[in-house]
Computed example of a mutant assay.
Amino acid sequence: MTLDTLLFDFDGLICDTENAARESWQQTYREFGLELPAGLWARMRGRHDGELLAADDLGERLGRAMTAQELDHRRALKSELAHAQPLLPGVAELLGEADGRGLGIALVSSAASSWVESHLRRLGVREHFRAVVTGDLPLPNKPAPDLYLHALGELGVRADTAVAFEDSVPGVTAAVAASLRCVAVPGAAAAAAAADPSAFAGAAAVVPTLESLSLDSLERLFDDEFRSTAA
């Protein structure tokens, strides 16, 4: 395989905004004397409608819908916590190496463009991405493959020359459905899912952080996969 394109998720992969989101909901639940159910968080991760799932669950427990003020308070808390988060380990190095080799780099996220773009600029990595595809587009969101297919179209590349990086099960599902080789990088927020061997069954590889990867190691990984498939 000639590797010419890298496709990155954002939340939980480039920056640990996933833990910021989880903590914001934990604090919100605790304000009402409740605990965020672990199973609910596992269902929320990587989904564009995660807020709706949590708001509906909390509303059922309270016996009333969350107010607009309560939802705004939760969002502000998430934003405050997220803006304190740095790049995750290995991100800067892998982006720099890919740029140095002239690879195409795109970001594919279920989040809103305003959220993703502001954090990419804050973290100083926006210039690495030739395309930024977000959940604002009128396309089915992850776990559907449409956002990834749109990114491939923007870059003018084929799926078999690209590798996607994802930290959530819906993200891996979307990448695989787009015929991409996918590397799962489950962070601390996905510890429970990562403990289940079947959670990322669709991924070609599962690694603890991007720090353990280089372009050479990626090419070796997928060359080996293609050789074993051909045999």
Results as ranks from 00 to 15, higher is better:
L77S: 13
A194E: 03
T209R: 14
P208C: 09
G100C: 06
H83T: 12
L95S: 08
D49R: 10
L155D: 10
A203F: 07
G124V: 11
F32S: 07
Y148H: 08
S109A: 08
S24Y: 04
V207W: 08
L3Q: 04
A112E: 15
R158D: 03
E60D: 11
A55T: 13
V185C: 09
T173H: 04
E23N: 09
V206L: 03
E23H: 12
L221Y: 11
L218Q: 02
Q69G: 10
G96V: 06
I105R: 13
R47D: 10
V163N: 01
W25M: 05
A84Q: 15
A191D: 14
P197Q: 15
S79A: 15
F32R: 01
V116E: 11
V133M: 05
T173W: 00
G12M: 08
M1Y: 10
E166R: 03
V172H: 02
V183N: 02
F165T: 02
A164F: 05
H83L: 11
R64E: 13
S217L: 09
R64L: 06
L7F: 00
L213F: 02
L180G: 11
E166N: 03
E166K: 02
D136A: 09
G39I: 12
R101T: 10
T134C: 15
E127R: 14
R43V: 02
L147C: 11
D9L: 03
H119M: 00
A203L: 10
D72W: 06
S24Q: 01
L103D: 01
T2M: 14
A204P: 02
K78A: 14
R227F: 07
A191Y: 13
V108G: 09
Q85I: 09
Q27F: 07
T28V: 10
T229I: 14
E70G: 02
E211N: 04
G100T: 07
R22C: 11
M44D: 00
L3Y: 05
I14G: 03
A21R: 11
Q69V: 13
H48G: 12
R47I: 04
R158F: 07
E166A: 10
A55E: 13
A164H: 08
L123D: 07
S179H: 12
R45A: 14
R121M: 04
L149G: 06
M66I: 12
A112S: 09
E93D: 15
M1S: 12
L3D: 05
D57C: 09
A193P: 05
A20V: 05
E93P: 01
A151C: 05
A92Y: 03
F165L: 11
L36M: 05
A38L: 14
T67G: 12
H119Y: 01
V116I: 11
R227D: 13
F200D: 00
F200G: 00
L152Q: 12
F129P: 13
T173V: 01
A151R: 05
G50T: 09
E93A: 15
A175I: 02
M44C: 15
S109M: 03
G171R: 04
G59N: 02
L147D: 10
L123T: 08
S198G: 10
L3A: 07
L123N: 05
E23T: 14
A189S: 15
